[in-house]
Simulated scan of single mutants.
Amino acid sequence: MSDVHPLVERPPRSVVAVVGVLLVVAPLVLPSFQTYLLTEVLALALFATGFNLLYGYTGLLSFGHAMFFGTAGYTVGIFMRDVAPGLGLGGATPLVGFLIAGVLGVLVAVAVAVPVGYLSVRLEEIYFAMITLSFSMALYVLAIQNYLGLTNGSDGFSVILGTATLGGFDLALYDRVTYYYLTLLVVAPAMYLLWRIVRSPFGLVSEAIRENAERTGALGVGVRTHRWAAFVVSALFTGVAGVLIAPLHGSLSPGANLHWSISAEPVIITVFGGPYTFIGPTIGAFFFEYIRWGITQFPVLEAHWQLIFGTLILGIVLFAPRGVSGFVSWVVSRATGGESA
């Protein structure tokens, strides 16, 4: 069970408000690249939190979430490349096209998740992880082969958002500050919705299944059906993250969007931040991105960044098995003289 201190798991509204204000103000004072980095943190936080609904709350480790992340991104890219220019909506075409593409991207991710999840939840533990990995890599191979000429194979293609004209006002969607606010407008309600899900009866049943699936099933819960539902919901939010990442990176390719290593990112982020708390993946995404960026600032470290990063992860696993959020919880508990919940 979670041993996260209440002040960490459910911070006061004043703290949430301060964080919200900082997120709104941040791009107005940060350099351009830091705005880009923070935008990526937001998208990865959503990616990892959606993944954690399946892993940390339901107890299923998936190595196939790249298929939902990538299919959503590819749907956006293909729609913006082949369909959006012909919408005939004048200056509003770039924005409306992206909104339509985003919705379609999430729907495609869910459409992939329904049959894949139906088959995958019949297995457990390492077998579940391996079958999700197999499905994901099969989709990766299809993208590499460039069937129907949609993906451009291993070369991939660019995803560049244009400038939307609304009421005589030009909105450059490719601008980093503009895209940051667009990302924030999507991520904030998505994270709130995820929070409501994990605090709902659905989330409580998921935790019960994680702790003891047999006993939960004996109480009349359809364990397999619930796992399937958690799988699909997790894929939905992963799809939203994939939609946001594609224009941010400005390109799509099988290696960068569908490879198994992309599925490993939310696993690493969640373990880093803490899988048994809602805020853990967000903390993990922040540290994951900024530690990677910090390493690149030193050529000596950058030459061996895998070793440095691997050592940090090993340290977390050995000395803070509940991640950074668990360590923070311990510090708060000691400071307040209480015990973790």
Rank of each mutant, 00 (worst) to 15 (best):
M1G: 14
S2P: 11
D3K: 12
D3F: 11
H5I: 08
P6Y: 08
P6R: 09
L7G: 09
L7R: 11
R10K: 11
R13K: 10
V16C: 08
V18W: 03
V21D: 00
V25T: 07
A26C: 04
A26D: 01
A26N: 01
P31I: 11
Y36K: 00
A45M: 01
F47S: 03
T49W: 01
T49L: 12
F51L: 10
N52W: 04
N52S: 08
L54W: 02
Y57P: 06
Y57F: 15
G59V: 07
G59F: 02
G59Q: 04
L60M: 13
L60K: 09
S62N: 10
F63T: 05
A66K: 05
T71Y: 04
T71H: 01
G77Y: 02
A84K: 04
G86L: 07
G86R: 09
G86P: 04
G88N: 09
L89K: 12
G91L: 06
A92D: 10
F98D: 02
L99T: 08
A101S: 14
L104C: 13
L104E: 07
L107G: 13
A109K: 02
V110D: 06
P115R: 07
G117Q: 04
R122G: 15
E124T: 15
E125G: 13
Y127H: 14
A129V: 12
T132N: 08
L133N: 06
Y140D: 10
V141W: 12
L142Q: 02
I144T: 13
I144L: 15
I144Y: 11
Q145A: 15
G149H: 07
L150F: 14
D155S: 12
T163P: 03
T165M: 04
T165I: 09
F169Q: 12
Y174E: 11
T178M: 01
T178E: 00
Y179A: 00
T183A: 00
L184E: 00
V187G: 00
Y192N: 02
W195D: 13
R196S: 10
R196V: 13
V198H: 03
S200K: 06
P201V: 09
L204P: 01
V205K: 08
E207P: 01
I209G: 05
A213E: 14
A213P: 01
T216E: 06
G220Q: 10
G222P: 12
V223Y: 08
T225D: 12
W228H: 13
A230E: 07
A230I: 09
F231D: 06
V232N: 03
A235I: 07
F237H: 03
F237N: 05
F237Q: 04
T238G: 15
G239I: 05
A241F: 05
L244W: 01
L244D: 00
A246I: 11
P247D: 10
P247C: 11
S251P: 03
S251W: 15
L252E: 12
S253P: 05
S261L: 15
A264N: 04
P266F: 05
G274R: 01
P275E: 14
T277G: 13
F278H: 02
G280P: 02
G280C: 10
P281R: 04
T282S: 12
Y290N: 09
Y290D: 08
E302D: 12
W305L: 05
Q306C: 04
T311K: 04
T311D: 08
I313N: 02
G315T: 06
I316S: 02
V317I: 15
G323C: 06
G326F: 09
G326Y: 07
V328C: 06
V328F: 11
W330H: 10
V331A: 14
S333D: 09
A335R: 11
A335Q: 08
A341F: 10
